[in-house]
Nucleic acid binder design. Structure first.
Lengths: 126, 126
DNA sequence: CCGAATCCACAACGATACTG
DNA sequence: CAGTATCGTTGTGGATTCGG
């Protein structure tokens, strides 16, 4: 019983830890720049400057910041070619590929309901 | 030919408009609170206060703000019961249900790669 | 119970300049 | 070309209060 209680509390602690971690990951990854980066890298490896061109409106700073974050969470792999000028390439890891389906799903959803949403907005704004 | 040119430019304009709208929707919806709200409403209608309890750490303000935004975009329907005290219920529309799959996918992904991510973080932070 | 408005601390972001 | 650092501005988000 004591064992069970102990086991129980350990499991609870683990669950709590896992939950807070999950929440943290959610906060990191569920933002528009991260999604757009993943979407862009979905088709293959890209250089920093290529990403910058691909994703309209993203600043140098936001791109580096989000790439670091995605790298830290293991969604993106960064490889530096020690040439001159330097060449840095980014590619999705397996985990990153795993999220691609989600992001693609959201893109599809957006286009599917575009008209719907536009209409709803007009109604609401009146 | 003129017609074709005209048609062409109209289509281009439409595409541009659609793209910027899509981007706008992305900016609105691809944030953690919106996702957590959709996830919570996935199981059925909830009151404001129930949502507040369900979603740990969300402030009164963030909840109202995001609910308005989701309502404006037609993902959530808001129904007020004119009782006293007032009772306000939120429920997913068809469009909202459409996003549910995406959000669920992300939740599943998070739990699937939790260990992966934790390890990657430890590596990176060294 | 729900929502809107106010105030304010602090984080996000863009621009710029500098390094390898 | 890619990354870091700094600075100034804007905006976000929490706490609180008042109103329906």
């Amino acid at each position: 019983m004591v064992t069970k209680q102990l086991r129980g509390s350990v499991d609870d602690a683990d669950l709590l830890r896992a939950d807070s971690l999950a929440r943290e990951i959610f906060s990191d990854v569920a933002n528009k720049w991260a999604f757009l980066i993943i979407e862009s890298l979905g088709e293959g490896t890209l250089r920093f400057s290529e990403l910058r061109n691909e994703i309209e409106g993203i600043s140098h700073k936001m791109l580096t910041q989000n790439l670091r974050m995605l790298e830290r969470n293991g969604l993106v792999e960064r490889t530096v070619h020690p040439t001159v000028p330097p060449r840095v390439e980014y590619t999705l890891t397996e985990a990153g590929q795993g999220l691609r389906a989600t992001v693609d799903g959201m893109c599809a959803w957006t286009h599917r309901y575009l008209g719907h949403i536009e209409a709803s907005r007009r109604r609401f704004d009146a």
